[in-house]
């Protein structure tokens, strides 16, 4: 139990995908303009990463390892993730068309989102058990959502502020991202992880 809690906390704060490992920067900058879309994107990411960690773990454990096909990990994981994203897209289009439109191009982009692939590869590399893998996948996605949410709050405030001409748009966004990232360094070494 202690191990699971540690994995979860580490994945959310210490090894935050966006702010410590710098994975999935594209949606981090792309979807963080509004809190509502950030929540939607976060939800999609949580769903995809959690399911993909189960599927990729099983594929890795029962298909790749017995046949010594570890070198195929990347391409097989990409296959799994792409199919999952397609599935999520179809389901969202049917049941939540508003969210589907709000996510727009970023939903298909999860296919090539390195946070999703990164979590699958990290799970394989660390040789987690299935339970640990699911917890790790879920909490790293929650960490991603947390970063996205925090940052969208920051960006919404920047929007109403008087930013110097030269910094308007992307420059101030990147500076703010760096500062939020610095804040997360504070979690480094928490519980000796």
């Amino acid at each position: 139990m202690k191990e699971i809690i540690l994995i979860a906390i580490a994945a959310v704060f210490v090894e935050n995908f966006v702010l410590s490992k710098f994975l999935g920067i594209c949606p981090f900058l792309g979807v963080s303009k509004k809190t509502s879309t950030a929540v939607g994107m976060g939800g999609a990411i949580v769903f995809v990463i959690t399911i993909s960690s189960v599927v990729t773990w099983s594929v890795n454990e029962y298909l790749l390892k017995p046949y010594e096909l570890i070198y195929l990990q990347t391409i097989v994981f990409i296959l799994v993730i792409a199919a999952l994203v397609q599935l999520v897209e179809t389901v969202l289009k049917k049941f939540m068309p508003a969210l589907y439109r709000a996510l727009g191009i970023y939903l298909p982009l999860i296919t090539t989102n390195c946070a999703v692939l990164g979590s699958a590869l990290l799970i394989a590399e660390r040789e987690y058990t299935l339970l640990n893998a699911v917890v790790f996948g879920f909490s790293s996605a929650v960490g991603f959502t947390l970063a996205l949410l925090l940052f969208s709050g920051v960006r919404e405030r920047i929007e109403t502020n008087d930013v110097p001409m030269a910094f308007r748009g992307l420059p101030i966004t990147l500076i703010a991202a760096a500062l939020v990232s610095v804040a997360f360094i504070g979690f480094q070494g928490l519980f000796g992880i």
């Binding site: 195929l72 296959l79 599935l87 179809t90 049941f95």
Partner: peptide
């Protein structure tokens, strides 16, 4: 293995896309 997985995912997706 890879082509089998591709086939299975393809079947699932085509079923889901007609269902939903």
């Amino acid at each position: 293995i890879v082509s089998g997985m591709g086939l299975i995912f393809g079947l699932i997706l085509s079923y889901v896309s007609t269902k939903f």
